[in-house]
Design a binder for these strands. Sequence first.
DNA 1: TACTATACGGTTTTT
DNA 2: CCGTATAGTA
Length: 730
Amino acid sequence: MSDLLRGLNPEQLAAVTLPPQHALILAGAGSGKTRVLTTRIAWLIQTGQVGPHGILAVTFTNKAAKEMLTRLSAMLPINTRGMWVGTFHGLCNRLLRAHYRDAGLPQLFQILDSGDQQAAIKRLLKQLNIDDEKFPPRELQHFINAQKEQGIRPGAVEAWDEHTRRRAELYQLYDEQCQREGVVDFAELLLRTYELLSRNEVLRRHYQERFSHILVDEFQDTNPLQYRWLRLLAGYPAATGTAMFAVGDDDQSIYAFRGADVGNMREFEREFKVQNIIRLEQNYRSHGNILDAANAVIKNNSDRLGKNLWTEAGAGEPIRVFEAYSDLDEAQWLVEEIKALVRDGHLSSEIALLYRSNAQSRVLEHALFSAGLPYRVYGGLRFFERQEIKHALAYLRLIANSDDDTAFARVVNFPTRGIGARSLEQLADTARQHKCSLHAAIPLLSGKAGAVLSGFAQLIAQMKEGSSHLPLPEQIDHVIELSTLKEHYRSEKEGQDRIANLDELISAAASFIAEERVAEDGTPETHENVLASFLAHASLEAGEHQAGEGDDALQLMTVHSAKGLEFNMVFLSGLEEGLFPHENSAMELDGLEEERRLMYVAITRARQRLYLSFSQQRMLHGQTRYNTSSRFLEEIPAGLLKWLKPRQNRSFSGGGSYSAPAYQSAAPRREQNAGGVPGLRIGAAVAHAKFGQGVVIGAEGGGNDARVQVNFGAAGIKWLALSVAKLEIL
DNA sequence: TACTATACGGTTTTT
DNA sequence: CCGTATAGTA
């Protein structure tokens, strides 16, 4: 046991070894939060206070859940089976699968991701002939999710105006549609589970008694429904002997815009009469100057629970600040600085380029690409969200649940099989009249529409019959074959990637059974169940896009996606009023404070060195904007900053042109080659087997993702992936 | 049905 | 500016 606790500081130790009571751990950035959480679980089990069975640990992301399990199995000799560790959504899925009847769901209910949800809403609006100008699907989706996250069903919506009343009606109709189709959206997973447990006393008691310790990660990110969900399982308001151990940092609450409510921390403290509040303020990540800057910035927020980070490490280097003339200059400066770092032996993967909004990455990417610096952009399209994968999954979903109209509509005419809008309209009418799914309405149709559609129904039946006895990967392979998706993509220009992804889906299924098989408990594993859990997995875990995972590349991401990560070197660019803090934040209540927390998160990502930069002018939405530096920059004590270039008074003449920055007049940079191919650079003449001769006019991406834009004259301008296209350099 | 023109909108994001 | 979505055309 001493092994387990060795190396913990007094506060960490106190948190880990708290008696089984409710506790709130205020864990600052870099204070060893995950370590405390996992060590707490290990300690509870090792000291015999609870078996793995009694542990419920909740996270927000699959990554965090996985990380926790990995660390736990390294700490504990026993295996982690029996412990419930997962995301809110993953755990709810598990509960609903186990009690689908009580929850009023079909056994093989499907999960709608946000894209599916939006498609379902659009379909509903269309079917009701509702003007989507007046009720934009996106807005309605947001409305519905916001209600669900407050635990509000359509009947309980507070509607003072006609428009809201109408939206509540649509919410009602949407829920009915989902129920009819046997699908649940993300918010519904939570709400349905909450209602199941609050309605069903036997079940509630069972889980309340089972989980004597509930541990919650990133508590500041919980929404009201999630908080109520936790409260229910903890037996509130009765004292059931369950101990809730919540870990969070109010200063890192940056998801209010999607429903998170930091107020839950105070609520928890009040409602659960939390006696144990422990602050983890010692930071093991950053040097002193960086922490001082972070503390100085966050100090400007009101209504904090209060916390001040400190470190035993020295002050370290000053924070470097750079003022650029334009976004292009800023990018150019970044490139030079990064090259110098790399020359000095710094690992590219230890250098992060952070920005407030995704739009900013474009300029950076372009500069990095031209400089031949490998980089990786986070937050792109994820594996299970790719269209070809969604198409293949839709066929699989129809096998599992033919009433899933979202899946039906997605693939009924993809690849095209002559089922046009007219036939589908007829089908939708019939389905509505008989109050049945699109699939179920097919036999009721006659004429041409009936003929083509029953062809599709036969295809689905064939897929089902032909593969029901096969193991999952073979089953998917079979379905893809019958779908003729690959044939379709063979003729498309980006088709090669798509076909490769479809093959990848089969291996994803193979590794899914290899991994999940072991972890799964209790539920009988019929063929159908395996397929359903794989589909749930695909919805719940969209899959990190694995391109260039292992490569040593610069890390580009938004500040939001950097949360939880750390790097030796951090560049934070675009520190301008209107950008960061974002102009829209001024409209929202507490918007500026959330932006400031975002700034706090950004600063605390850096271990050794932090660069801040801003630009006098920036191209945004096709227009040049002139910005002043961010107020957050002013909030950092001047003594911590080192301005990389003295601020000169640069007059700019009426025409709006600035004098050229100094470094641009330095020795001409050697243009690097695109994707490491000698001679392939902007302006180079190339030849392509199909398009003929052309000239390289653009380039982006790095390593395996490198693409070049080529003007083939008569054949047009094309983007070509270097890993795929065969280009001859002339 | 597939390709092209035009309009529109454009923080942040996980599940 | 630039990608997406919808409408319009061959």
